[in-house]
């Protein structure tokens, strides 16, 4: 398989960083097309920087970032993003929030006005997939936190991105809702074959969802360990209670503990 996201020997310092310490240093990571990659690490390890580099929101000071065969020199335009904070716009209904990316990305941008009904149907379809059927007319603030996060996933997927970036998207949810959304995410990935990079603090989440888990060191961040997750798909939530799963989580925890100690 060819790499879809290829970050090679990248060192990045933010222009605003006061101490001049790089956020990431000699970071190398390859993620294949259609793969579900999870990135875990101690806080402040540059996981969000990695997301910004892969989407072209930041450009590396040293090294190269190649996405979909092209070196990144501008925002990549083929990415969808979701964050811990659902960032829904309160003045738009849920459906209009989900349609927002289409108002930016071509060819949808110029088609949206004339083919509105078609796109609304598409948004409704996505809402159904994440378990929010018929809730599109509501305003985001009429939805619970978990429902807003589901809608935010729909917004990240509406323009059929080839790359989905998730920055701790379930971090603020209660554990039952979180596990429900893991399954939603698992099914979306299975249905769409989109490449997903999930940044998370939750090792169980990474182990349950990902094909490969990457552990990052403390700042300046780089990859210290890479672990293939071999549980067959489709995975059931029950696997999270098997000894093999616990062993994997324990192993990942060991890497993070070491990374924290090294800092």
């Amino acid at each position: 398989m060819k790499p879809f996201v290829d970050i090679h020997d990248v060192t990045h310092v933010y222009a605003r960083a006061e101490d001049g310490v790089p956020a990431v240093q000699n970071l190398t990571i390859r993620i294949n097309e259609g793969e579900f990659a999870a990135i875990v690490g101690p806080s402040g390890c540059g996981k969000s920087t990695l997301m910004k580099l892969a989407t072209g929101l930041q450009f590396p000071r040293e090294g190269t970032v190649i996405v979909d065969g092209k070196e990144v020199g501008a925002p990549v335009k083929l990415a969808g993003m979701a964050f811990q904070n659902p960032t829904m716009l309160p003045w738009r209904t849920t459906v209009d929030n989900i349609l927002l990316p289409l108002e930016i990305v071509e060819p949808h941008r110029s088609r949206l006005r004339k083919h509105k009904a078609e796109y609304v149907a598409k948004a409704e379809g996505l809402l159904e997939q994440v378990g929010l059927k018929g809730q599109g007319h509501k305003y985001p603030w009429q939805l619970s936190g978990g429902m807003q996060q589901r809608a935010s996933l729909c917004r990240a997927l509406i323009h059929e991105p080839k790359l989905l970036m998730l920055d701790e998207p379930f971090g603020a949810l209660d554990s039952f809702t979180r596990e429900e959304l893991w399954c939603v995410m698992r099914d979306l990935h299975a249905a769409r074959k989109v490449t997903i990079i999930l940044v998370t603090h939750d090792l169980r989440e990474a182990a349950f969802l990902a094909d490969r888990v990457f552990c990052m060191s403390a700042r300046p961040g780089h990859i210290v360990a890479e672990r293939e997750v071999t549980f067959p798909r489709p995975r059931d939530l029950e696997i999270t209670y098997t000894p093999e799963f616990s062993e994997l989580v324990h192993e990942l925890r060991g890497h993070i503990a070491q990374a924290r100690k090294a800092a």
């Binding site: 910004k52 989407t55 072209g56 929101l57 501008a74 925002p75 990549v76 335009k77 990415a79 993003m81 964050f83 904070n85 960032t87 716009l89 003045w91 927002l100 990316p101 108002e103 930016i104 990305v105 917004r155 990240a156 323009h159 970036m165």
Partner: peptide, 27 residues
């Protein structure tokens, strides 16, 4: 405007003008 919201749109190739008119002004 929340930086995450800005990132969502910028990653899609939105211009400064897009962000001001779609998010900034209504906000």
């Amino acid at each position: 405007v929340e930086p995450e919201m800005e990132d969502v749109l910028r990653a899609l190739g939105a211009s400064k003008k897009d962000i001001v008119f779609k998010i900034g002004v209504p906000r």
